[in-house]
């Protein structure tokens, strides 16, 4: 399955919907979107990965790159993910300590609201 990307902004939080496979072939599109969002002043990003079928280290690199970019503007990049197959990759690489990972968009929005 290819990669489908969409995004919307609610309050100050930009929600990026990702569907499909994030790998060495498709990850550049996600990277471009994240860079574009940051360049347009969106510094609080929430990436919803509930419909992601596959994520490899290239995709992790794109997410880490996005996190570095938003942090340069005192922003945040957090994730929504409950799929064990995806969470396992974050655990193996120790990135669960780097990203805020939530069970739902609503839960993430609530946490983000408290931080404001």
């Amino acid at each position: 399955m290819d990669l489908k990307l969409d995004h919307r902004t609610e309050d100050r939080l930009t929600i990026v919907e990702v569907e499909g496979e994030i790998d060495v072939y498709t990850a550049p599109r996600l990277r471009e979107l994240l860079i574009d969002l940051v360049n347009k002043g969106n510094f609080h990003l929430l990436v919803n990965m509930e419909k992601v079928d596959f994520l490899d280290s290239t995709g992790l690199g794109v997410l880490v790159g996005g996190l570095k970019r938003v942090r340069a503007h005192d922003g945040s990049l957090e994730l929504v993910c409950t799929q064990e197959r995806i969470l396992k990759i974050f655990r193996i690489t120790g990135l669960t300590k780097v990203f805020g990972i939530y069970a739902s968009v609503d839960e993430a929005k609530e946490a983000h609201g408290k931080d404001k």
Binding site: D56, S57, G61, V64, G65, R71, I92
Partner: peptide
């Protein structure tokens, strides 16, 4: 995090 970049994944992939 400071060491990580979009292109750091060569060795990271092996760790995975």
């Amino acid at each position: 995090l400071g060491m990580l970049s979009d292109s750091f994944m060569s060795n990271f992939g092996i760790a995975v």
